[in-house]
Design a binder for these strands. Structure first.
Lengths: 159, 159
DNA sequence: CAGTAGCTATACAGATTGTCCACTTAAATA
DNA sequence: TATTTAAGTGGACAATCTGTATAGCTACTG
């Protein structure tokens, strides 16, 4: 499961200028339009590209506070019911189960520190959650990105 | 800094079917094309929508292991030089400075647990990094999302 | 009340998309 | 070696969309 040079260049191109159409991509990459179309279809079908969703900045919506909350849960209840509950809280952007002393790791946002407390309270209320521990993200020197990873791959061939 | 109903519906629509054109959006939302265009321009200008990048699944590229690495750094060196170094490691997808006992929080991916060790080694080598601690993400019951947040906002009016 | 901002409706040329098709390679298979 | 198969190229066509402008209407503000 890897991608080749062309795939990588295509993804990189789209990552930098996402609004480009297929035709424009083909021009920039120096290949036929059909090729780009086929590549995109294949990348999407293989699940490499999962979508082209608009990237929304929570901060721009007033959610200035971002935090990571780790949870310990009552083992007996299992992860899924807890995750389902967490999924019902809009401010919970992401949930992972993890190794180590804690059981789950969430990324949450809030409108203020006071609001963060509310969000955490809501998390604590979730049945099965035993304890939480939070750290606030003060700054994000490296925002989420995949370009370097994509550029790095190209030694591979087809799948 | 909030968005109104229409903005929210527009973002939600695009989040679900990102490939839609402006015209199609206007039809679905029941407003004029110019309105959608203007809204999109404004949302982008205001920084609410930061892009439409292709969402790439690292796992589909063979990076099956995801982990969170927290760092303690030598305070005297400051965060920035460390962050710059970390930005040079493709497998480091994201870096935040945080409150609490540790100083930085990173999301990293790797091709295997053995490979993760390599990545961590590379992080440890960064000048200014004193200590690292990692947890592996076993599962992701709630993948990153902003829809619930966007849907939740609509009580607000214009900025 | 005048001015501004936002939405609607309409228009038009130019560009793009979704699909076909025929032909050429390169690689895998019999 | 002969034969498939997958992938890429170049071109063509109708249908659609985009960028851009115009003008009228409404709501809010000083």
């Amino acid at each position: 499961m890897t991608i080749d040079q062309l795939d990588a260049r295509l993804i990189a191109l789209l990552a930098q200028e996402p609004r480009l159409g297929v035709l424009e991509c083909s021009r920039r990459l120096g290949v036929a339009r059909g090729t780009v179309q086929a590549r995109l279809d294949r990348l999407t079908a293989r699940g490499v590209i999962t979508g082209f969703g608009p990237d929304v900045a929570p901060a721009a919506l007033g959610y200035d506070v971002m935090a990571f909350v780790t949870l310990q849960i009552r083992q007996i209840s299992g992860h899924d019911p807890v995750a389902d509950q967490l999924a019902g809280i809009p401010q919970v952007l992401e949930v992972h189960t993890i190794t180590g002393g804690d059981d789950m790791h969430c990324r949450v946002v809030a409108r203020s520190n006071a609001d963060l407390q509310q969000v955490i309270d809501r998390i604590v209320e979730v049945r099965g959650v035993v304890r939480t521990s939070s750290v606030i993200a003060l700054d994000t020197p490296v925002p989420y990105r995949i370009l370097p990873l994509v550029r790095d791959v190209p030694r591979g061939e087809r799948d």
